[in-house]
Design a protein around this nucleic acid. Structure first.
Length: 603
RNA sequence: GCGCCUGUAGCUCAGCGGAUUAGAGCAUCUGACUACGGAUCAGAGGGUCGGGAGUUCGAAUCUCUCCAGGCGCGCCA
């Protein structure tokens, strides 16, 4: 109902302006930015929208809020366009103005949706088709080379993918960047260690498999933490790599390629598309970061490292906390890379992405880091005007014990295993159900449905929570097929497909719709909320808002389905109800596809 | 110690500064299959929105403070 909202807002502004002039005519009071405080009604019985401005104007105009509300309503009633849109406004409580959209307008909206594949969601450039398509960078997933993806990567991957899908649907040119960890000290560690224990891995492709690499990595990490000599050798190895040493580079390429193959399997499985552009990509730009910061006088050499000190950032013992741009041995680290990446993403093509918005989907533990990086970028004037840089943090994945699942010490659930188990459980559940209902289905059907249900359940469990909070990882909860879960949404879809199979054509033109049941009107209102939900997700980058909406839509639909007959109804109700079914299915399908969830007709 | 985040029903969580009953789901209890798939629907019980203060006509929501938990805090990313 975004377009109705906009229209109403305009009409309200006129009426409020007039009201202010009536009560307290003054040159200052006109022409300023007024907020009509038009919001969705807090309860269905209050209508569709409520206007709250009378209460805040009361003090300023020294009149009762109720009186002001009455005058606003009078002025609204003069407007014939308004009267065509809304029933007579009601004043409630101290001075709220309740608005209810006329039924015929709601029906017209529904008719428009039936013909609109975008279901009311406008394209970003729909009003200015000649404008350049704005580019948004979504930086997500970003596993580390030589490590296996674990449940922590799942959050970044799924959330990032969903945000990218929403932005793409809105018409942005989205760069899905996989900022893989392929360039840090970890590499020095690994190469140094492999030189000793498995030199063939550095010369021959696929000499060891990823599982072994993970073990080597773990060993290397342990040596790094305990052995000072190994530490220095490792760091120097990184510097060699960063300076382009051919042997180090060759070893590095082999390791990357091996990991890449493994990552791809997971991404294909999850139906996630990404462009790999790891940290190493920005290597040629690192020195510039140092030089430019130096020119701007922002660098301080401290204990041999080149640092930026920011106001208000202190470490353990109250000492100012630096952001290290170049290490004492000449190497660069992640702040430098992130700064180089930020510049590249804003820079105009071809030597940059020309983005207007940067979105980083990483765990909340990196909040401080990004805050620092963004602040340095701001001070250095590297963030163009009218552009946005956002860290999209998400909480930890905790074990049943409430503690963080360790990523480096080894006790991690492999992502692949998690997904497989989800699918296995979905399959067992499906087979049990088939037996109970004496249904016969082919193995192909069972495999396909289990995979879709399992993966959808895992994804949805993650997406449906506010990403900021930690979440306790639990197979049982994740895979539960009851309540606010993917299977519930899928089931609503399956029911509609069932109606269609039983002879209800969903190919409705919707030229003569007629509704009479409250369950129909509730469903209509719910369907029309889709566009504002998408707008919200685009702005706040919270996919759980879309999940909530789809769940509520499914609930409202199930109520309608349960209480209002469709196929047995007489015309014109039968076709009108079929139109609602069709629109519900379209909305669910589109919404679920924006979450990256698979869709089924039968389950 | 400092910084960031979180604290809402037994459990998992929604909640856009607004209306005498703060919402879902799970779990518990009670109903509904001669029905378009019951993986559903109707209903019940269950809350000092961590504590306190402040701003406001109005606070779960904004500010401050305290308490509890999580994460981070110099050359890992």
């Amino acid at each position: 109902m975004l377009n109705l909202y906009k229209t109403l807002r305009k009409q309200l502004l006129v009426a409020i302006e007039k009201t202010i002039q009536d009560i307290a005519p003054s040159p200052q009071s006109s022409g300023r930015a007024l907020d009509p405080q038009l919001v969705a009604a807090s309860k269905p019985e209050f209508g569709d929208f409520q206007v709250n401005i009378a209460l805040s104007l009361a003090k300023e105009l020294k009149q009762s809020p109720h009186g002001i509300a009455m005058r606003i309503v009078e002025n609204l009633n003069i407007d014939q366009d308004f009267s065509a849109l809304c029933n007579a406004p009601q004043i409630a409580g101290p001075g709220f103005i309740n608005l209810r959209i006329k039924n015929q307008c709601l029906v017209a909206e529904i008719q428009a949706r039936i013909k609109d594949k975008r279901l009311g969601v406008p394209l970003i450039n729909s009003e200015t088709p000649d404008a350049i398509t704005p580019t948004v960078v979504v930086d997500f997933s970003s596993p580390n080379i030589a490590k296996e993806m674990h449940v922590g990567h799942l959050r970044s991957t799924i959330i990032g993918d969903s945000l990218a899908r929403v932005l793409e649907f809105r018409g942005y040119s989205v760069l899905r960047i996989n900022h893989v960890g392929d360039w840090g000290t970890q590499f020095g560690m690994l190469i140094t260690h492999l030189k000793e224990v498995a030199p063939e891995a550095l010369e021959t492709a696929n000499a060891v498999d990823l599982g072994d690499l993970v073990t080597f990595y773990r060993e290397a990490k342990q040596r790094f933490d305990t052995d000072a000599v190994f530490q220095t050798t490792s760091r120097d190895e990184v510097v060699k790599l960063q300076r382009g040493d051919p042997l180090a580079k060759k070893a590095w390429e082999l390791l990357c390629e091996q990991s890449r193959q493994e990552f791809k399997k997971i991404y294909d499985y999850l139906d996630v598309k990404l462009s790999e552009r790891g940290e190493s990509f920005y290597n040629p730009y690192l020195q510039n970061v140092v030089d430019d910061l130096n020119k701007k006088g922002m660098l301080v050499t401290d204990e041999g490292a080149k640092c930026v000190f920011l106001d208000g950032m202190y470490g353990k013992s109250g000492k100012p906390l630096p952001i290290i741009i170049q290490k004492s041995n000449g190497g660069f680290n992640y702040a430098t890379t992130d700064l180089a990446a930020l510049r590249y993403r804003f820079a105009t093509p071809p030597e940059g992405d020309g983005a207007c918005r940067l979105i980083y989907v990483t765990d909340a533990g990196q909040s401080n880091h990004f805050q620092g990086v963004f602040q340095v970028a701001k001070l250095a004037n590297w963030i163009p005007k009218a552009s946005r840089v956002e860290h999209v943090p998400f909480g930890l994945v905790q074990g049943e014990d409430g503690k963080k699942l360790k990523t480096r010490s080894g006790d991690t659930i492999r992502l692949r295993d998690l997904l497989d188990e989800a699918i296995d459980r979905a399959e067992a559940d499906l087979r049990r159900r088939l037996k109970e209902e004496s249904r016969e289905e082919t193995e192909v059907f069972i495999t396909r449905v289990s995979k879709a249900v399992g993966l959808a359940a895992v994804k949805y469990a993650d997406l449906s929570q506010n990403r900021v909070t930690n979440y306790q990882f639990s197979f049982d909860r994740m895979l539960s097929l009851q309540g606010n879960t993917a299977p519930y949404l899928l089931y609503a879809l399956v029911r509609i497909a069932g109606i269609s199979r039983k002879g209800g054509s969903l190919d409705i033109q919707g030229s003569s719709l007629e509704f009479k049941e409250p369950q129909e009107w509730a469903l209509i209102r719910e369907l029309l909320r889709f566009d504002e939900t998408i707008a919200e997700v685009e702005e706040e980058l919270l996919p759980n808002r879309l999940c909530n909406y789809l769940f509520e839509l499914s609930q409202v639909f199930n109520r309608f389905y349960d209480q209002v007959p469709v196929l047995k109804a007489s015309q014109p109700y039968r076709d009108s109800r079929l139109a609602l079914c069709r629109l519900t299915a379209d909305t669910l399908k589109l919404g679920m596809s924006l979450l990256g969830l698979p869709i089924l007709e039968r389950m």
